Simulated scan of single mutants.
Amino acid sequence: MDNTTDLIVVADSDESVHAGFKRLFGEHLTVVCFSDSENALQFLKQNHGVAVVFSCYNLPRLGGTAFLRAVETVAPQAARVMLTKETSAEAIKKALNEGHVFLFLEKPCMPKDLAGAVEMALAHHKQIAKDRLLLERTLAGSVKLLIDMMNLFHPEAFRRTGTVRKQALKLARLLKIEKTWELEMAVMLSPLGEALLPKQILARYRAARSLTEQERDILNRSPAQTRDLLKNIPQLETVAEYLYLSARGFDGSGFPKEGPKGEELPMIPRIIKLLTDLWYASPETGPDAAAFEALTINRRKYDPKILELAKAALMDEVPEEKNKQIAECYIRSLQPGDILIDDALTENSRELVLSRGHMLTPTTIRRLEHFHHTVGVRQPVRVERHMVVDPEEVQADVV
Rank of each mutant, 00 (worst) to 15 (best):
G162M: 09
A19G: 13
G49N: 15
I268S: 01
A247K: 13
H358S: 15
P283K: 04
E237D: 06
M387N: 10
V31A: 02
G262S: 05
L103N: 11
E308V: 07
T73V: 15
Q127A: 13
R221M: 04
P260G: 13
I147F: 11
D6I: 00
L245T: 01
F158E: 09
A186L: 09
K324P: 06
T73M: 15
A115R: 14
L295W: 06
N220P: 00
P256T: 02
L192I: 05
V10A: 01
L134P: 03
F102P: 08
P266L: 14
H386W: 03
P111L: 07
L68G: 03
R23P: 01
P76A: 08
V389D: 10
V17H: 05
K45P: 01
G99Q: 11
M188L: 14
K85M: 11
K22V: 13
S246G: 04
G376N: 02
M149G: 08
V32G: 01
T87E: 12
A310R: 09
Y280T: 10
L189Q: 03
N97T: 14
V143Y: 10
Y242V: 04
E194H: 02
I341T: 02
S210Q: 14
L236S: 08
L174D: 09
L295D: 01
A294K: 09
K311T: 06
A78Q: 03
K273S: 10
S35E: 15
V353Y: 02
D228K: 14
H100F: 08
R132L: 08
T87A: 12
W181Y: 15
E369T: 12
L83I: 02
D342F: 09
L334T: 06
L265S: 07
G259P: 04
T30N: 15
N39Y: 03
K176C: 11
E384A: 06
K305N: 11
V143W: 11
A115D: 08
E106T: 15
E351G: 06
N58T: 07
L275N: 08
R80Q: 06
V81R: 09
L171N: 04
P319G: 13
A313V: 10
P108L: 03
S355Y: 06
M315K: 08
G20L: 02
V399S: 09
E392D: 11
V74G: 04
E328Y: 14
L243Y: 02
V52D: 01
D397F: 07
L334R: 08
P155E: 03
L114W: 10
L7D: 03
Q395K: 08
G99N: 14
L174S: 12
L122H: 10
S253L: 01
T238E: 07
T163L: 05
N58G: 04
L7G: 04
V383H: 04
P198A: 01
D228N: 15
K322C: 12
M315F: 07
V377D: 05
I8W: 10
S333R: 14
E15S: 12
K94V: 06
V71Y: 09
A207P: 00
L219D: 02
P60T: 09
G249E: 00
A40S: 06
E392Q: 10
I339F: 03
G357V: 10
L368W: 13
Q200I: 09
E119N: 14
F250E: 11
H373I: 12
F158C: 07
